[in-house]
Computed example of a mutant assay.
Amino acid sequence: MTAAATGPDVRRRRARWPWALLIVVAVIAALLVAAELVARAVLPGIVRSLVVEELKLPADQQLDVEASGVLLPQLISGTLDELQLSSKRVTIGGITGSAQVTATGVPIRGGALGSAKGTVAIDQSQFATLLKNSQLPITGVVLAAPDATVQGELSVLGREIPVGLTVTPGAQDGDLLLTPVSATLGGAEIDLKRLSGMLGGLGAQLAAPQRICIAEHLPSGITLTGLHIEGTSAVADISADGRIATDPALLENGACPR
């Protein structure tokens, strides 16, 4: 029995065993790689379709989706670690710009997001649209980092006088905040402190920081957390309530006090 157990046939089988194991491992690895590639090919399309549908975007909306990390374990667990969504041109709430959003803790089978933050970059004309609830007499806006210059006309003693107000944009409690840094009246630079003396209550209003509600331009589940000027673009920082993925009401645009 001992001689037979250690004969040539047994030794050959033992010699082949490591190779067979390596082949099995290689096949499994190949299948896992293939599955990962399939997941990466299929998932972006699914996510894109859901986002387009929920936000009521055009069917041909350009939207890039990228998932971080190895997908298979995340799919098995039911939660994606991180998704990056970006579009060069998207319109939401009547405002058009480029957008980049990062969502974490994304449940595959439905549920609230762990977090979602991003940026939206808009040009001068779109920034001017955000200012329509302002008390400023606006006829035009020029963006030049780090400030924005608001141009308009004031009626003084029956005459229309050009006025310019340079402001540093920001955000406060979800509102757009404009902090004046300089002003011109009739083309001449004027100290902000003199505006109230020259124009009364209107001058004091122009010289003071202004909060402007922009809720009607954003889904109620999205909040403006910051805004700054880069070159000739305004870049807004936004944050989303994780429940926006489950509560349709949070996808509806907010409202501003009238």
Rank of each mutant, 00 (worst) to 15 (best):
G221V: 07
S98K: 13
E54G: 06
L206F: 11
R12D: 01
A148L: 05
M1Y: 14
A59P: 00
C213T: 06
G105S: 09
S233L: 11
S182G: 13
L57V: 02
V120P: 02
L80A: 05
A245H: 07
L199N: 11
V38F: 07
L113P: 03
S68A: 10
D81Q: 15
S49H: 12
R243Q: 11
V90Y: 00
S196A: 15
D237W: 10
I95G: 00
R109F: 11
L178E: 00
Q84F: 11
Q210N: 07
T184G: 04
S220I: 12
V235I: 13
S125N: 15
L178Y: 06
I108N: 00
E189I: 13
K117R: 07
A15G: 14
L43A: 09
L130C: 05
A234M: 04
Q84M: 11
V167H: 02
L21V: 15
A236P: 01
D147T: 15
P248Q: 08
G78W: 07
G152C: 01
A59F: 01
D60P: 02
Q74F: 03
Q74N: 04
I222A: 08
G111M: 07
G78Y: 05
D123S: 07
I28K: 11
R258Y: 04
P58I: 03
P44S: 06
I76N: 01
S196I: 10
L83M: 05
G152P: 00
D60T: 08
G164M: 01
A99H: 04
R40Y: 01
T79H: 07
S196Y: 07
R194V: 13
I122C: 09
L75C: 03
V10M: 10
G200I: 10
V52P: 05
Q124L: 05
L154S: 05
L154E: 03
R48K: 14
A148V: 06
L71N: 00
R109M: 05
V52T: 13
K56Q: 06
L206Q: 08
A15C: 11
A5K: 15
L195K: 14
L71V: 00
S77W: 03
P209H: 11
L143Q: 05
V141P: 02
Q100N: 10
L218Y: 11
Q100G: 10
L136A: 11
A20E: 05
K88P: 01
P73A: 09
T168H: 05
A5Q: 15
S115I: 05
Q84E: 12
E153K: 13
A255M: 14
G203C: 10
T139V: 12
E53Y: 10
Q74E: 02
R211N: 09
A26G: 13
A148P: 04
Q61H: 13
T79F: 02
S86R: 12
A15H: 15
L250N: 05
A20P: 00
T246K: 08
S98W: 03
G110H: 10
G158E: 03
L113N: 06
W19V: 13
L176R: 06
I23P: 02
Q135G: 07
P137L: 02
A29K: 13
P44W: 09
V38E: 00
Q172N: 12
A5I: 14
L85N: 01
A112G: 04
V70P: 01
F127R: 06
V156Y: 01
E82F: 04
I212N: 08
K193Y: 11
A35E: 01
G158A: 03
P209S: 06
Q61M: 09
T119A: 06
G200Q: 09
E160V: 12
V167I: 05
A30F: 05
G110N: 08
R89I: 03
N133A: 02
P18H: 12
G78R: 08
